[in-house]
Design a protein around this nucleic acid. Sequence first.
DNA 1: CATCGACGAGACTTTAGCGTCTCATTCAGG
DNA 2: CCTGAATGAGACGCTAAAGTCTCGTCGATG
Lengths: 190, 190
Amino acid sequence: MALATRERILEAAGGTLSRNPNASLDQIAVEARVGRATVFRHFESRAGLLKALAGRAIAETDRATRLAAADARTATDALRLITQAVVGAGESFRFLDSAAELYDEPEIVEAYQRQMSELADLVEATRREGFIRPDLPTAWVVASIDGLIWAACRAVGDGELGVVQAQDLVWETIADGLSTEGAREDRDAE
Amino acid sequence: MALATRERILEAAGGTLSRNPNASLDQIAVEARVGRATVFRHFESRAGLLKALAGRAIAETDRATRLAAADARTATDALRLITQAVVGAGESFRFLDSAAELYDEPEIVEAYQRQMSELADLVEATRREGFIRPDLPTAWVVASIDGLIWAACRAVGDGELGVVQAQDLVWETIADGLSTEGAREDRDAE
DNA sequence: CATCGACGAGACTTTAGCGTCTCATTCAGG
DNA sequence: CCTGAATGAGACGCTAAAGTCTCGTCGATG
């Protein structure tokens, strides 16, 4: 039971915080159908809960990265798998909008920077495969991917797109952009 | 003087809140080199300050939209001008990360939805000009543009890119995506 | 010089939310 | 049936921050 309760609290916290970034522990406890005291039995403090939640998101991303590295034959394919995995797990990340406090947690900040740096390395690798345009700064490529993933998660959360649809669209947009000016001319030979 | 003070408070609030989404009125007052009481002389409450700040951002966007409509010969060009104007004014928008409270302000929500709907209309217009790929849902196009603008503002704020550079990259990415797969073959005739 | 409005400083009250603690209840295992 | 661990309910104290109020100062204006 203990584990189930802890999990239920984390789940509720993720959901509630993604809807209302400043939700109180009261609201989270209610959402989790749990007494507020129980939240403190499982987590040291509000910061501890946030930290656990962030740790979960980081672990999930790491897992997706490992799977992608195992399955993909090219860096480009790995980038695609990771991107789509993160969009799929988007609900686990939306709470981060609110989590300015997490910038005070060295562990979390470090893990986040590590993942960003891994992403940058992966982007470099895809660049060597000829996937990424050589004239784009890596910082911008990483930022764009981040922004598009965020947009996709938002669109899914708002019910504007389905998860699978969003996963496909993110990758298409990364690869080809939004305009007809290039990609589609290749494909459709207009 | 009254106007200058009010403006200084708004400026400080935008800056402080973009760095720390949960900044107190104390911090904002200090940043504005103003007594905390003076903040209340100019704004009814914290919510009032936030609302004024949001109103400012909305007005700035409307202004950019009007200018773009006046200057641009095509919808595509208008979309470019608006996108780049918003990136240029990005500092006025970053505080919105923190402003979950604003969802309770009908005026602001309505104005935001109106702007999003105007953007959607503009996207439709560029689609008729053959700019946007016909197979992409408008909701996704709007969301992507939003995401890329957000990414650009973040990159500028973090010092990773210059403003002009970010403005160009956003538009390039919207138009051509990140990959070599289409656009660059057109341009460089590889 | 007198006046008046804007301001800074800071005391004060109130409220929301965090974190602690206690106690009764429930439920599973022996 | 007995025991102990996990929980729910809720009281309690504490702090940060919002919002109010007063008073003294400064500076522009007549």
